[in-house]
């Protein structure tokens, strides 16, 4: 599903540049649930942003579902993001003046799905994350865990090939974190490919594979015995 070869990325910080990713080789197959772990500054978020086409690599190959991702202009990138990817952010990034349902329906708007169909699908995904009764509420009326579940529903609504989650539990307490992870595991069980960036080992162990990043290179790439989050909920 995802093929990356020799990926480099550096940021300009004033006069000197910061080499964040120093040649990453990495691939993900369909249906995998991968955790990308590392301390802050290890380049894990940068990697995820490049995978999500929110940012561009300096060099290296990137194939997503056998499509080469290279030299994207904004319009093309937007097209790919809409078709291939769903995002879950640490800070939720819901649009604050839209209700939960409208937030979930938004990616469908950009897929040119009709209004009725958008609402039907949005409700379906809200039901999946257990928030059907909260469909008409604004994000400010929801708890952190609920917000993240709305964000996951939104990411899923577009029916993406890959779900990218950047510290999805970073702003949540452990109980809510496990609830969110439980949801992510359920989505993965349905066959969806998911990448989770985290620095928490317990969250990482709820995935099926852990990629350790350190100073811009992959230090360790291991398959792990998945811990089911439902055991803690």
């Amino acid at each position: 599903m995802i093929e990356i070869k020799n990926l480099h990325k550096s940021y300009k910080m004033g006069s000197n540049s910061l080499h964040v990713l120093k040649g990453i080789d990495f691939s993900v197959k369909e249906g995998e649930l991968v955790a990308i772990m590392g301390s802050s500054g290890s380049g894990k978020s940068t990697l995820l942003n490049i995978l999500g086409m929110l940012d561009e690599a300096d060099s290296g190959d990137y194939h997503l579902d056998k499509v080469e991702i290279r030299n994207l202009n904004e319009t093309k990138a937007a097209n790919y993001r809409n078709k291939f990817l769903g995002f879950v952010f640490q800070s939720f990034n819901l649009i604050n003046y839209k209700t939960a349902m409208e937030n979930v329906a938004l990616p469908l708007y950009y897929q040119k799905v009709g209004r009725k169909e958008r609402q039907r699908k949005a409700l379906k995904y809200l039901e999946q994350v257990g928030l059907k009764e909260w469909a008409g509420h604004l994000p400010s009326e929801l708890s952190g865990g609920q917000k993240q579940r709305v964000a996951i529903a939104r990411a899923m609504a577009a029916e993406p090939k890959v779900l990218l989650a950047d510290e999805p539990t970073g702003a949540l307490d452990s109980k809510t974190s496990y609830e969110v992870m439980d949801l992510i595991q359920q989505i993965n069980d349905q066959g969806n490919t998911i990448l989770v960036v985290t620095h928490e080992p317990d969250i990482a162990h709820m995935c099926k594979r852990i990629v350790h990043l350190r100073d811009g290179v992959i230090e360790k790439d291991e398959k792990v015995e998945q811990v089911r989050a439902s055991a803690y909920v």
Binding site: G52, L54, E74, T75, A78, N79, R81, N82, K83, F87, N93, L94, I95, L106, P107, Y110, Q111, R154, A158
Partner: peptide
């Protein structure tokens, strides 16, 4: 956010 969700410029 809209761009992340697939909005074009």
């Amino acid at each position: 956010i809209r761009k992340a969700l697939g909005a074009k410029p």
